[in-house]
Design a binder for these strands. Structure first.
Lengths: 175, 175
DNA sequence: AGGCATTAGTTTAACACTCAACATTTGGAT
DNA sequence: ATCCAAATGTTGAGTGTTAAACTAATGCCT
């Protein structure tokens, strides 16, 4: 019953997996080395820096940074200790709280950005042709749309794949 | 001096980032739910299952699973507690140790594989045309090659990109 | 043989992430 | 008005990851 991966699908999946894992661990390591924060924290600072007045509700920030509420809460606590973010109470909703990027935080982000952008270029964009960058964009868009639609939806416009080739003999080649 | 990202590069990078992050967290969550281990552990079991006699030196396993030695050491300790992997001393090198997949571990992997493969299909492969799968493969190869070559190497066969468009006005759009 | 850099693997501590439980507030339904 | 489900945000426990220090064995070099 299981629709195992055929050889080409398997190669594609495993290569993708390895490439993205190495890519992110490399970017994370460089960011950690250069400015002492993980990439997810950097992402939070970026989203804040782009918001009007550099303030956002926690929940909006969580959404913007693709983070869970819990993770964001922990992260902001840590960024607050560093003096890069300040929490304020929300005037219109007593449940809520606001996260504001401090001047110090903005300065830290400005200091970190050039080397991070350079990393992204060096490890990703410079390795791809402009056409591949375009392709990667479209592919990512498709994946994202599927994931955002929720786990129940089914991709359409594509022929059904129920008849794909059979799986492994003895061992699960499902990496 | 900084080669900031232009609009298209920025969109591509951010979409890629969001898509892969959501994809992996989704796959991880489903694997955790269905068989109680993170994806990195699953990867370890798969690599062991494919090795001759289902045994590998720790260092070989680390390489195969794209893991650091430290991480692997922790992971194998945990998998050993579960009875899925057993450590043996290496006969040819007294420093070394071998990790062997137990029958129990193999059975657990077999049980986990179908639903995991289904996840990979549902969230990734089914969303892409066969051509896009091919493109993703090539893109991943390119990234991987660059990363494996080491941080010092420069991509070749591509025109230099020193003259890209300038960066942000006030704030680092480097997400 | 002796010395020593290298390699294999583990360990510790600090940190980040997840899940579930929790307190609080909101907003609608009756 | 009252009740209750839904939403906001935090917290704590458990788990995984990382970097650096550490032990032990290897193999080369003289």
């Amino acid at each position: 019953m299981t629709r195992w991966l055929n050889a080409e699908e398997q190669r594609a999946w495993r290569t993708f997996l390895a490439a993205t894992q190495l890519l992110y661990s490399q970017l994370d390591r460089e960011l950690q080395r250069d400015c002492g924060i993980p990439h997810t924290y950097y992402e939070i600072l970026v989203r804040l820096s782009e918001a009007p007045e550099r303030v956002l509700r926690m929940s909006e920030l969580a959404q913007a940074a693709e983070s869970s509420r819990s993770r964001l809460s922990h992260a902001v606590a840590r960024l607050e200790e560093a003096g890069w973010v300040r929490r304020e109470s929300c005037p219109t909703d007593r449940r809520g709280s606001l996260a504001r990027l401090t001047e110090q935080g903005f300065a830290a982000l400005q200091a970190a950005a050039p080397s991070h952008v350079e990393s992204v270029r060096r490890h990703l964009l410079d390795r791809l042709s402009p056409q591949q960058v375009q392709q990667l964009h479209e592919i990512s868009e498709a994946i994202l749309t599927g994931l955002r639609a929720g786990p129940e939806s089914t991709p359409d416009g594509r022929p059904g794949r129920t008849g794909t080739t059979a799986g492994p003999g003895g061992c699960p080649e499902a990496g």
